[in-house]
């Protein structure tokens, strides 16, 4: 039986009678039209990426070799001076960058570690809850959807000398644990407090990732473990945790990236204080770029940004290698 489609195929692939006035066969013409429309469809994205992505990346990279304040008509080319000044050479700029690098390192160690340490058990417990799981999941997700400037301000009030944390400690008879200068006012507690606030904001997404992983584990695997005599703890440690290792890798990578580049929490809550004890590299780059009152430090900011980018790439590669070796 000849269907309309086969007839059409025959007609299209058939002879000279179906050629277009220009001489091109209809199929080739259709392919060309589709190709053109395809190119046109991706053109906006390509143009946008060229302008917003490639151009700005190239511009920023070039800027890292210059002194400029963003407004003067000319750049002063300085070669690799900006990199050298930030890393060791300039006695004004290098010491704060080195101090900020150390603070950033602490943040990069503890934020991923604590986020995983909190979110994995939370996800396991939430996965075992049979009632109100949706409600509980929403509650635990609240920190993520509410994170922002307003929440950081709220945290500042909570952490003040007369704030809720000190009040709670006093009410519970733990007055000796109160922080008289406020939790952000004491250099010994300020960075640790900020890390806790960042972890509080990062746990929901990490927990959700673990939860999706937990729900995708084949129940027969868990049953087999139980039949082999593994208890709750053993199942989680020896079966579930290894199975979710790729998700742990993703969580660690996401938190490392956030710890390396993120600065809004620090900007809003301490502005790097007290006395620069909570300054981090992202905040230092932001200050050099926008808060130097038109001093020509945009190039320094750009150089610092590129150094952070290189570190992020290296970390991503290490993470990828570790994941591949484990999976």
């Amino acid at each position: 039986m000849t269907t309309p489609e086969t007839a059409e195929r025959r007609t299209v692939s058939g002879g000279e009678s179906r050629r277009t006035p220009s001489g091109a066969p209809p199929r080739r013409r259709r392919i060309r039209t589709e190709a053109v429309s395809g190119y046109l469809f991706v053109a906006p994205a390509v143009i946008l990426f060229s302008v917003m992505g490639l151009y700005t990346i190239g511009y920023g990279f070039a800027l890292s070799f210059a002194h400029w304040n963003g407004f003067t008509p000319t750049w002063k080319w300085v070669g690799l001076d900006n990199y050298a000044d930030l890393l060791w050479r300039d006695p004004v700029y290098a010491p704060p960058v080195q101090a900020a690098a150390l603070n950033t390192l602490w943040v990069m160690i503890f934020v991923p570690l604590l986020t995983v340490a909190v979110s994995f058990p939370l996800a396991v417990l939430l996965n075992q809850v049979r009632r109100l799981q949706g409600v509980l999941r929403s509650i635990y997700f609240v920190p993520y959807v509410t994170s922002g400037i307003a929440v950081y301000f709220a945290w500042r009030y909570i952490l003040q000398p007369e704030g809720a944390i000190n009040f709670l400690l006093g009410t519970l008879g733990l007055g000796s644990l109160q922080e008289p200068q406020g939790w952000l006012g004491n250099p010994d507690t300020a960075l640790a407090t900020l890390i806790v606030v960042i972890v509080w904001g990062n746990v929901p997404v990490a927990m959700l990732l673990y939860l999706t992983g937990l729900q995708s584990i084949n129940p027969s695997v868990l049953e087999a473990a139980q039949l082999d005599g593994a208890g709750w703890w053993r199942t989680n440690v020896s079966v579930i945790w290894p199975l979710l290792m790729p998700l742990t890798g993703i969580n660690v990578l996401l938190n490392l990236r956030e710890s390396l580049h993120g600065f809004q929490t620090f900007l809003v809550m301490t502005n790097g204080g007290p006395a620069q004890h909570t300054n981090v590299l992202g905040l230092e780059a932001y200050r050099l770029a926008f808060l130097e009152n038109l001093n020509p430090t945009l190039g320094l900011a750009s150089a610092l940004g590129w150094m952070l980018f290189v570190v992020a790439i290296v970390l991503a590669l290490i993470n990828l290698r570790v994941l591949r070796s484990r999976v």
Binding site: T33, S37, F41, A43, P44, I47
Partner: peptide, 19 residues
């Protein structure tokens, strides 16, 4: 094809206006 081209034109115009 005409509709597709129109859609492309609109998308391009929108993206350029955004730029």
């Amino acid at each position: 094809g005409t509709a597709k081209l129109a859609a492309v034109a609109v998308a391009t115009a929108l993206s350029l206006s955004a730029l």
